[in-house]
């Protein structure tokens, strides 16, 4: 495997707080790699260091063999960043936006025109290229945000939560685009706190929590790992009027059979080998069960198994 992105002991401190501890990670050329974690896990700080926006406190990152600190310009030229924010100029047209962002990467003249046409086509905005961006829907702006990061055809495309607030149609368009770019050989680093997106899109995933990578591998590897290949997720909805003490007792009882988390009156336990044992434990704690659901373990379950809390808790 040729690593296009290498992280070695990469970390960032803000004062006494380590936003990112010390990451070791390789992303192979041509793969879609997911960085999954709740808000505050350190995903954005990590990609900010990779993009050269934030200086690392320790370790190093290399993009296409270029160190992001000592060979910053070469590393940045090889990287395309699509920030979480809509980092485009609302008052300009898409073409004017791309004129400017292209110039930042040294594009001009016929090359700029050709790349502009390509990026606008990829974003599905070719027929709206000269309209003010401020009149666009959120999904169209997201697509222009993506086009601005693609314009210079980077070897590594870094996408930070690119689907926040978009409609299903634009989400599908963005997913199709990412897959097509990968098919053309582009490497994609995709961060999200949406488990379903990462599961649907990525070849490999690293799960981040508290500034650390707690697990990484292909999705089958992760599901077969701590969660267990045949493991189940059990969701138990408690019946009647139940006090916090009783819910706490039920949670403690369930925790003997897997990582247990509470969401209101619902307990979520994973990985679970025996559903009957969980039911007995909860009822043994003196709490009635109103409803019970089971499903195969997913990344959410993997996250819970590794961190002891839900992705949504972030």
């Amino acid at each position: 495997m040729t690593a296009l992105l290498e992280l070695r002991g990469l970390g960032k401190d803000y004062g006494a707080r380590a936003a990112v501890a010390a990451l070791d990670l390789d992303v192979a050329e041509g793969e879609i790699f997911g960085l999954l974690g709740p808000n505050g896990a350190g995903k954005t700080t990590t990609i900010s260091m990779i993009a050269g926006v934030v200086a690392p406190s320790r370790g190093h990152a290399r993009v296409a063999g270029h160190d992001v600190v000592t060979a910053a310009f070469a590393a940045r030229a090889a990287t395309g960043v699509v920030p979480q924010d809509l980092a485009i100029y609302d008052e300009l047209t898409p073409r004017e936006n791309l004129d400017f962002f292209g110039a930042l990467y040294g594009l001009s003249g016929a090359t700029l025109r050709e790349r502009q046409a390509w990026a606008l086509g990829v974003a599905g905005l070719a027929d709206r290229a000269d309209e003010p961006t401020k009149t666009f829907s959120g999904g169209m702006k997201r697509r222009l945000n993506l086009a601005a990061g693609l314009l210079h055809r980077p070897r590594l495309l870094v996408l930070d939560e690119p689907t926040v607030g978009v409609d299903p149609q634009s989400r599908k368009h963005i997913f199709d685009t990412i897959r097509a770019l990968r098919a053309d050989g582009m490497t994609v680093l995709y961060t999200s706190h949406y488990m379903e997106e990462v599961q649907a899109l990525c070849d490999r995933v690293a799960i981040m929590d508290g500034g650390r990578i707690v697990a990484h591998g292909t999705i089958p590897e992760l599901l077969a790992g701590r969660a267990g290949a045949a493991a189940l997720v059990v969701e138990i909805e408690l019946a009647g009027v139940v006090g916090d003490d009783a819910i706490g007792a039920a949670l403690a009882a369930a925790a003997a059979h897997g990582e247990a988390a509470r969401d209101g009156r619902t307990l979520r336990i994973t990985p679970v080998a025996s559903v009957g044992a969980v039911i007995a434990a909860v009822e043994g704690a003196g709490v009635a069960i109103a409803a019970l659901r089971t499903h195969a373990a997913d990344l959410e379950a993997v996250f819970l198994a590794h961190t002891g809390h839900s992705l949504r808790d972030g």
């Binding site: 910053a72 990287t79 980092a87 962002f101 990467y105």
Partner: peptide, 13 residues
């Protein structure tokens, strides 16, 4: 505020 400054900082400039 809009995030364009991060995009500028990420450019090879």
């Amino acid at each position: 505020r809009s995030g364009t400054w991060r995009r500028l900082l990420a450019a090879p400039v």
